[in-house]
C-alpha cells in the first residue's frame, strides 16, 4: 500500500528532510491517483464478491459449481467487504 510505505519513520535529520520532500512530491503528484485507483479496485472487488457469494445471498449470478471453486479466494475478504459495503456513503464522499 502506498500510504504505509510513506508513513515509515525517516532516519536522522537529513533523512527526515529527504523523506519529507519525497512525501510532499508524491502527495502532490500521485497520491490522489493512487487513492482513485484503489477505489476502482474496491468496486471491482465488490463485484467479484457479489458474483462469488451471490448464490448464497439468494441472487444466483454464476452456477454454484464455479462459486464453490472460487470461494476459497473470496473468504479472506469477506470481513473487509462487509465493512465497506455496510459503510454509510454519501455524494460528498466522491469529491476526491
Amino acid at each position: 500500500m502506498a500510504g504505509s510505505k510513506a508513513s515509515t519513520p525517516p532516519k536522522g535529520k537529513k533523512g527526515s528532510v529527504k523523506e519529507g520532500i519525497k512525501g510532499v512530491m508524491y502527495g502532490m503528484a500521485a497520491h490522489g491517483h493512487v487513492t482513485a485507483a484503489l477505489r476502482t479496485r474496491m468496486y471491482l472487488e465488490h463485484l467479484f464478491m457479489f458474483i462469488t457469494l451471490g448464490d448464497m445471498l439468494g441472487v444466483p449470478v454464476i452456477p454454484p459449481y464455479y462459486s464453490l471453486r472460487i470461494l476459497p479466494y473470496a473468504v479472506p475478504n469477506i470481513k473487509s467487504w462487509k465493512q465497506r459495503v455496510f459503510r454509510e456513503r454519501d455524494f460528498t464522499d466522491g469529491v476526491f
Binding site: 500500500m1 500510504g3 512525501g23 512530491m25 502527495g27 474496491m42 459503510r87
Partner: peptide, 22 residues
C-alpha cells in the same frame, strides 16, 4: 477502519501535498 482502500494511515507530508494539490 483500516481496509487499505479508503481508510489507511498516510504520512503528514504526503497528506499535506495531497491536500494542497486538491
Amino acid at each position: 477502519y483500516m481496509d487499505g482502500v479508503e481508510f489507511f494511515p498516510v504520512s503528514r507530508y504526503v497528506l499535506w501535498g495531497y491536500q494542497f494539490k486538491s
